[in-house]
Structure formats: C-alpha cells, structure tokens
Design a protein around this nucleic acid. Structure first.
Lengths: 226, 226
DNA sequence: AGATGTAATTATGAATTCATAATTCAGTCA
DNA sequence: TGACTGAATTATGAATTCATAATTACATCT
C-alpha cells in the first residue's frame, strides 16, 4: 500500500511558531517590545518548553532577537535593514518571474489572469482590502508557479520581515496607479512567456515598492515633526 | 555612555546549533540518517532541552527534517533541491557582485587581490586544500564587502545546504581551469568596479559550478554502475 | 537629592520528570 | 513459514523543577 499522506497533528511548538510569527508580522507585537516568556505562556496556555523552542525558530528567521539571560524582544526594522531586505527580495522576484514563465501551464496563467482582473476591479472602486488580497494571491501564485521550494521559502522568510512595514504607512494613490500599470505589463509578459523581461520587471516592481515605502515613511516622519 | 559590545557567553543551544550544523555540512552526519536525541545528548554531554532547541533551528534552516513523534533525520539533498538551491544562490551572487563593487574600498579590493594571488599559486601546484581555503576567503570577503547583512545570512544558509556536495565529488582539472579563468575575469571587473558585469559573471560562475557538479555526480553514478 | 552597594525578586537556561506516541518483539494462528 | 495481534520497550512532546543570571527595590552614605 502506498503512502497516502502522512497525517500529522502539528506539535505545539509548530503552532506557536505560526501564531507568534503572525503576531509579529501583523504588528500585534511591536518592534523593540520585550516578550517575556511568562506572559506568552499565559497568553497561549502552554508551558515554557514549546514556547522557547518556537522563539528559537523565530530568532533564526530574524523576527525576534534573543539575548542570553535577557530574553526575547521583537526585532526592530531599521531603515538600513529595510533596504537590505528589499534588495534581496527584488533579486528573488526576478528569479520568480523567469521561472514562472518557464513552469506555469496555461491553466496557471489563466488563474493568475483572473486574480489580476479582480485586482483591477478592486482598484477601480478603491477597495484596498480586496486589492491587497488579489495582489497577494497573484504574487503567491507566481512564486508557487516558479516551482522552486527553496526560492519560495526564502522569499516568504524575507517577505515576513517587511510585511510589517505595510502597517506603518498607507498607499498613495499615485503609487497605487503606478503599481497597477506595472501589473498590467507583468500580465502581458507572462502571457507571452517572456521570462527574462518579466523577471526584470518584477525586480523593478519590487524596488519601486521599496521606493514608495521610503517616501511614505519620510512623509510620516515629517507629519510627526509638525 | 554608549554601548561597547554586549559581551555574551554563548548558550548551550547556540553552541549545539554551531556544532551540529558543522557536522551536517561536513558530512559527519549522513543525509537520511536518523539522529536520535538520546545519542546526541550523550555525544555532547547535555540534556535534551538545549539539544531539541538546536534541532528546531536546524530544521528551520532546512538541514534536518523533524517528523512529529518520530524525531529528526538529516535532510537529503535531492537532485532537484540542488538545482533549486543553486538557482537561488546564483541570483544572490549576482547581487553580491553588484554591491561589492559599490561598497568595497580600495583596501578591501587589495585584500581580495592578495587572496586571489594565493589562490592562483595554489592552483599552480594543484594544492586543493589551499585552493579551497583561498577561494572561500575570496567569496566571504566579497559577501561581507557587499555590506548587506540579510544577503549575507541567506547566502550562508543556502551555501550550507550545498556545501556537502563538495564532499561527494572531486574537482575535475578541466573545471578547475575554467574556474580560475572566471576568477581572473572577476578580479578585472572588481578592480574596474563594474558591478553590473561582475554580478552577471558571478551568477554565471555559480551556475557553472552547479553544472560541473551535476556532471561529476552523473559520472560518479556511472562508476558505481560499472 | 543623588549615587552606591546589597538584598529580594524575577526571568531565563538547562535538567528532570511525566504522558503518550511509535517501534520492537514475542506469541498466536492460518 | 509467514502474517497478524498485542504487550513491552523506546523515543518523543511537553510540563515541571532546579540553578543561576539579571533586574528591581531598598537602605546607606556622601
């Protein structure tokens, strides 16, 4: 009899990794904040052992910082780190574009086209929620379509580090417009299966996203100063 | 008073991560091999708690696989994974090349030139040990010179996954010759601070390395079959 | 009042213990 | 002989306990 699918209940520490990661990414735990084991244990109703295991994993992903005998704190995202992270993600995006063109079948491209159309529609009525969702779906489909697990896991790791930034600023309509245009071009290149060009565009798309983020952050700081 | 450098004794689990990682990378623990906690605890003279924490970290790096209630085994490197990993590393190398040209100062380049000369010398007398060492030094200096911590950490993580492959096959003189030529070109571009070209070349250099590896692996399999 | 040294408290690192899932192995039956 | 059953063993997941480092609170002194 052949293996169906090894059914596995996730372990406590795995669930904790998931939930803690979400809390960090979704800014429920603020950067720089101390996260005493005791509090987290009470919050999740677990003992310290699985929780500490989870913290070790998050530390290796760079989401929290562990200091010996001084516990864990949520990693801060400095300006420099943001730049460094985006630079790497942009390179990975380029590869995603190249591989997605190679490996996606027609059905896969059709599916992305559908999500793209949904995204355009959301943009038309300025439905930010629906836009983010469709956008996320598209990027996920492209990454999965690339068919490279290593690429996928490292991309996800890096994306988690900067996703918080989304909560820090809001999208300018100008940038939003630009992003849409880039996505339109991406679809053209994807349908043409021009991997080299799509890769280059996706890299630029990501760097533009970073650019907009930096400007928005600077503007937000100015607001605070006034 | 400003922080000098938080002096910190490493914790047991950190040391274990280091040592276990080395054991995996240096092939002391063979791929697919089960690594019972009990044995490792005895080997290192520690209790299960820090050891399990270390295993969780290695699992998140992809070096070991944890199966619920069934313990840890050293991750296998499939042909596909090798390809996937090299594809990602190659992209990162490209970025390394671009950034190194931007950020290395003259002293940094001079240092790399020295290590390069040492490498050439080692090649002249076919001193594999010295060659590997100098080669490693050069790549490390370039990565550090890039000045992007995120890039560095992810590159290291990926490099660990494939370093084992070095133990599986030996370098053909033909490939060795080719690698040297590529390195000569790299030095020219680095001195000229032509980041774009250096990036492209470093990417290709890495893909060629993969190519040679695949061929060597295929040849090794043929040997076994005969 | 502010600084300094010391005791009390708290939090963390690691060992141990406990519960349970997985594996092994002996015994039974076809 | 060989496949199945179920008890015994072993290994793992998680809680608890213990030792020690770090922090806080407090008293003392200048």
């Amino acid at each position: 009899m052949n293996q169906i699918e090894t059914l596995r209940r996730p372990t406590l520490h795995e669930e904790l990794v998931e939930r803690l990661r979400n809390m960090v990414v979704e800014d429920a735990l603020k950067p720089g904040e101390k996260v005493p084991e005791k509090d987290l244990c009470e919050a999740f109703g677990v003992s310290r052992t699985p929780l500490r295991e989870a913290l070790k994993v998050l530390a290796s992903e760079g989401l929290v910082i562990l200091q010996t005998n001084r516990g864990a704190r949520v990693a801060e995202v400095t300006q420099e780190e943001l730049e460094n992270t985006f630079a790497v993600i942009a390179m990975l995006e380029q590869l995603v574009g190249e591989l997605a063109c190679q490996n996606l079948d027609d059905a896969g491209i059709a599916h992305i086209q559908k999500r793209h159309d949904a995204m355009i529609k959301a943009f038309g009525v300025r439905d930010l929620q629906a836009y983010f969702k469709a956008n996320q779906d598209i990027h996920n489909a492209l990454i999965e379509g690339a068919g490279n697990d290593i690429l996928e896991s490292h991309h996800r790791m890096l994306a988690a580090r900067v996703r918080r930034a989304r909560f820090m600023v809001n999208l300018s309509d100008e940038r939003w417009q630009q992003a849409i245009e880039e996505h339109e071009k991406m679809m053209v290149l994807l349908r043409a299966r021009d991997g080299q060009s799509l890769g280059r565009l996706m890299k630029i798309h990501m760097l533009n996203k970073y650019d907009a983020l930096v400007k928005a952050l600077a503007a937000a700081e100015d607001d605070l100063a006034n």
